[in-house]
Amino acid sequence: MEILGNIIIILGIIFMLFGVIGIFRYQNFFVRILIASKIDTVGALTVVIGLAVKHGFSFFSLRVVLLLVLMFIINPMVTHIIARSAYESGQNIDGSVDDIEEGNE
């Protein structure tokens, strides 16, 4: 179980590594946030599953699963709020920024 757990954790870290490469590779804000949300979900999900598998059926594993549920609820909300506020602030998907202040034309 411990070896299997370690393999799953390493897979999660590899997912995160690709996410970090993506964030450095792209300069566009929206592409970056789309890639960063991948680290939140796939990477963290895999690492947490790996931790639960490694420790077997225990209170620790149940707490880790509870943490996973909280991550599932909170992470997408944070990503959505950041992306939406950028979009409504005038950030365009091509990287340009609209001047939305009144009187500035």
Binding site: L34, K38, T41, N75, P76, M77
Partner: peptide, 12 residues
């Protein structure tokens, strides 16, 4: 919420 959880898509 599920679309946001899926990598590569964020509802605005």
């Amino acid at each position: 919420h599920s679309i946001t959880l899926t990598p590569g898509s964020i509802p605005l």
